[in-house]
Amino acid sequence: MSSMPHTTPEHASDEPSREEKMTIRRAPNLLAFLITGAILGAVAGVLFGLLGPESQFYTRGSIMGFFLVIGLVVGAGLGSVVSLIVDKISLKRTRDVTAQVDDVHDSGDRPGS
Rank of each mutant, 00 (worst) to 15 (best):
H105I: 03
S62A: 12
A27E: 12
R26P: 06
S2C: 12
S80G: 14
I24Y: 08
F66M: 14
I35H: 03
A38Q: 00
R93M: 03
K88V: 07
R26G: 06
G45K: 01
L50D: 10
S3R: 07
L47Y: 00
T94K: 07
R26L: 11
P5K: 01
S113C: 01
G41F: 05
S2N: 15
F67R: 00
R18E: 10
Q56V: 15
G108N: 06
A38V: 03
G79F: 11
E20M: 01
D96A: 13
D106V: 02
M4T: 12
P5L: 08
I24D: 11
H11C: 06
L47R: 00
T98N: 04
E54T: 11
I39C: 05
R18Q: 14
M4W: 08
S13M: 07
P53E: 11
I35W: 00
G108Q: 07
D109V: 08
G52Y: 08
V46I: 13
Q56P: 11
G61V: 11
M1C: 03
R18S: 13
T36Y: 09
G41L: 04
I24N: 06
Q100N: 15
V43I: 12
E10C: 06
L72V: 10
S55W: 12
S55G: 09
S113I: 02
Q100C: 07
M22Y: 14
R110Q: 08
I63N: 08
L51S: 04
G75C: 15
H6K: 10
D96L: 15
G108W: 06
S107H: 02
G79P: 09
I89L: 13
S2L: 06
L31W: 13
I70Y: 05
S83W: 08
P111M: 09
S3D: 15
F66Y: 10
H105W: 01
V74A: 14
I85G: 02
S90R: 02
L40Q: 04
L68D: 05
I24C: 10
K92D: 03
A44Y: 01
F57T: 12
P28W: 00
V43G: 04
D87L: 10
V74Y: 09
Y58F: 14
G75Q: 04
L34M: 13
S90C: 07
H105Q: 04
R18P: 00
G37K: 03
V74S: 11
L50S: 13
F66K: 08
L51W: 04
H105K: 06
D106E: 02
E54D: 12
G77W: 00
L40R: 04
G61Q: 14
L72W: 06
